[in-house]
Design a binder for these strands. Structure first.
Lengths: 220, 220
DNA sequence: CGTGACTTTGATTCGCCTCAAAGAAGGTGG
DNA sequence: CCACCTTCTTTGAGGCGAATCAAAGTCACG
């Protein structure tokens, strides 16, 4: 899954030589939109939110990054979005310059990053549909299915979905307010599609019905 | 701008050898979401819309492609979105297999496609903010500025923006209805920010104020 | 000049946002 | 260990704005 999953021992050694570790507390900022792209990162543990802010305080979260995800895929000279830790997180940190050099040496590394960029592009475009054309309950259903699918990819259980982010983050990801997010949870609960033992745990009772509500099944 | 802009004569020759030409009438479909990715394309002239549809007919246009743009950047095995001509268009068509092979031979070609993918990712993420957090008038203002900037990139005049797409397309791109798009045009007109000699021509009267309304200035 | 497609404008409805407050959970200090 | 405080979530009431429904206006074309 991670960027290094395609590398052999020799390549891994070269990668580790230019690597350092960065730890973040919850809500600590990693980088800010507009800064020169000096370093790139690979997430080891934790969760990161990638977002853009408007001058008046409105915020759009473009995505949540999980272990194995890479930070800096979209950017050339400067970071195009800000990144903050959602929960305490650990990252591998690389000089962007060193990484570029290594990409030149190891085609497999470059190919892997290129592939991850394509995956990120598909995810962003899927999200455009969610933001532009889905109703609040549909948005939430699609979000829960996405989290479930991503947990499964990481080898974690797909079904009791653990929400590491709060309602504000979910709202800012789905283009809603926290009240509407909360009401949408209640609707899904009332319809018998999910169970909420606590505010941060979602048990999907009917994957099939939830997919129908979402209108789509996310293919990431 | 186009994929071939970074190639030398030798490389161009190899590219032309595997190329064929595809012409599309207005509203003709080029490819459909889910089909195996047999061919990739570079747009020579015209405009293409890239979109996703829901079973109930709702549609989200992820973006409009202009001359120089590439079709197939996001996809691996299958196309992740459908593509149709907005107006009569001409494309260079390549076998995806041949193109992959050529990318292996010519690093500059691969690098260029990688770069175009990063640009597309930034555009998609910018659009997430537009879809999720901007009000209708703000959405339209940002769309007009985007079209203006893209025209300038192609060496065309930036100011009288020519709308090649109809209100339905604009609505499906911005996550609105055609009525709201039309009313937003009227609002921008009333505020003295634009002038509409006819429904498909927008004269930007105050780039500054329009940017302020949009809340952001698109950096693509 | 008539027809069809597209755009604009108007009237009404519905749903999300806003404002407000209560309820639940976690942390701190007494 | 419990009372208190803060933060987060849920629920309620009301207003506003975009969608919907409807119709008129505009334009291109035959």
């Amino acid at each position: 899954m991670a960027v290094c999953s395609v590398l052999d021992d020799n390549e891994l050694y070269a990668l580790e030589a230019i690597m350092s570790t960065r730890k973040l507390a919850a809500n600590e900022m990693l980088l800010e939109e507009g800064e020169p792209k000096k370093r790139v990162f690979s997430l080891t543990s934790g969760v990161i939110r990638l977002y853009t802010s408007l001058p008046d305080g409105r915020r759009q979260i473009a995505g949540f990054l999980f272990p194995g995800d890479y930070i800096g895929l979209a950017d050339d000279e400067v970071y195009s979005q800000s990144a903050e830790a959602v929960i305490p997180s650990v990252l591998c940190s690389f000089s962007a310059r060193d990484m570029d050099e290594l990409m030149g040496q190891f085609p497999k590394l470059k190919e892997r990053l290129y592939q991850m960029t394509r995956i990120a592009l598909r995810a962003a475009r899927d999200n455009q549909l969610v933001l532009g054309r889905l109703a609040p309950v549909e948005k939430l259903a699609s979000f829960l299915l996405l989290l479930s699918a991503r947990a499964e990819q990481r080898g974690e259980p797909a079904n009791p979905v653990h929400l590491v982010m709060n309602r504000i983050d979910i709202a800012d990801y789905l283009g809603l307010t926290i009240e509407t997010v909360s009401r949408s949870f209640t609707k899904l609960k009332t319809q018998g599609l999910i169970h909420l033992p606590d505010a941060n745990t979602v048990e999907i009772l009917s994957h099939r019905s939830l997919s129908a509500v979402a209108g789509i099944n996310p293919h990431i």
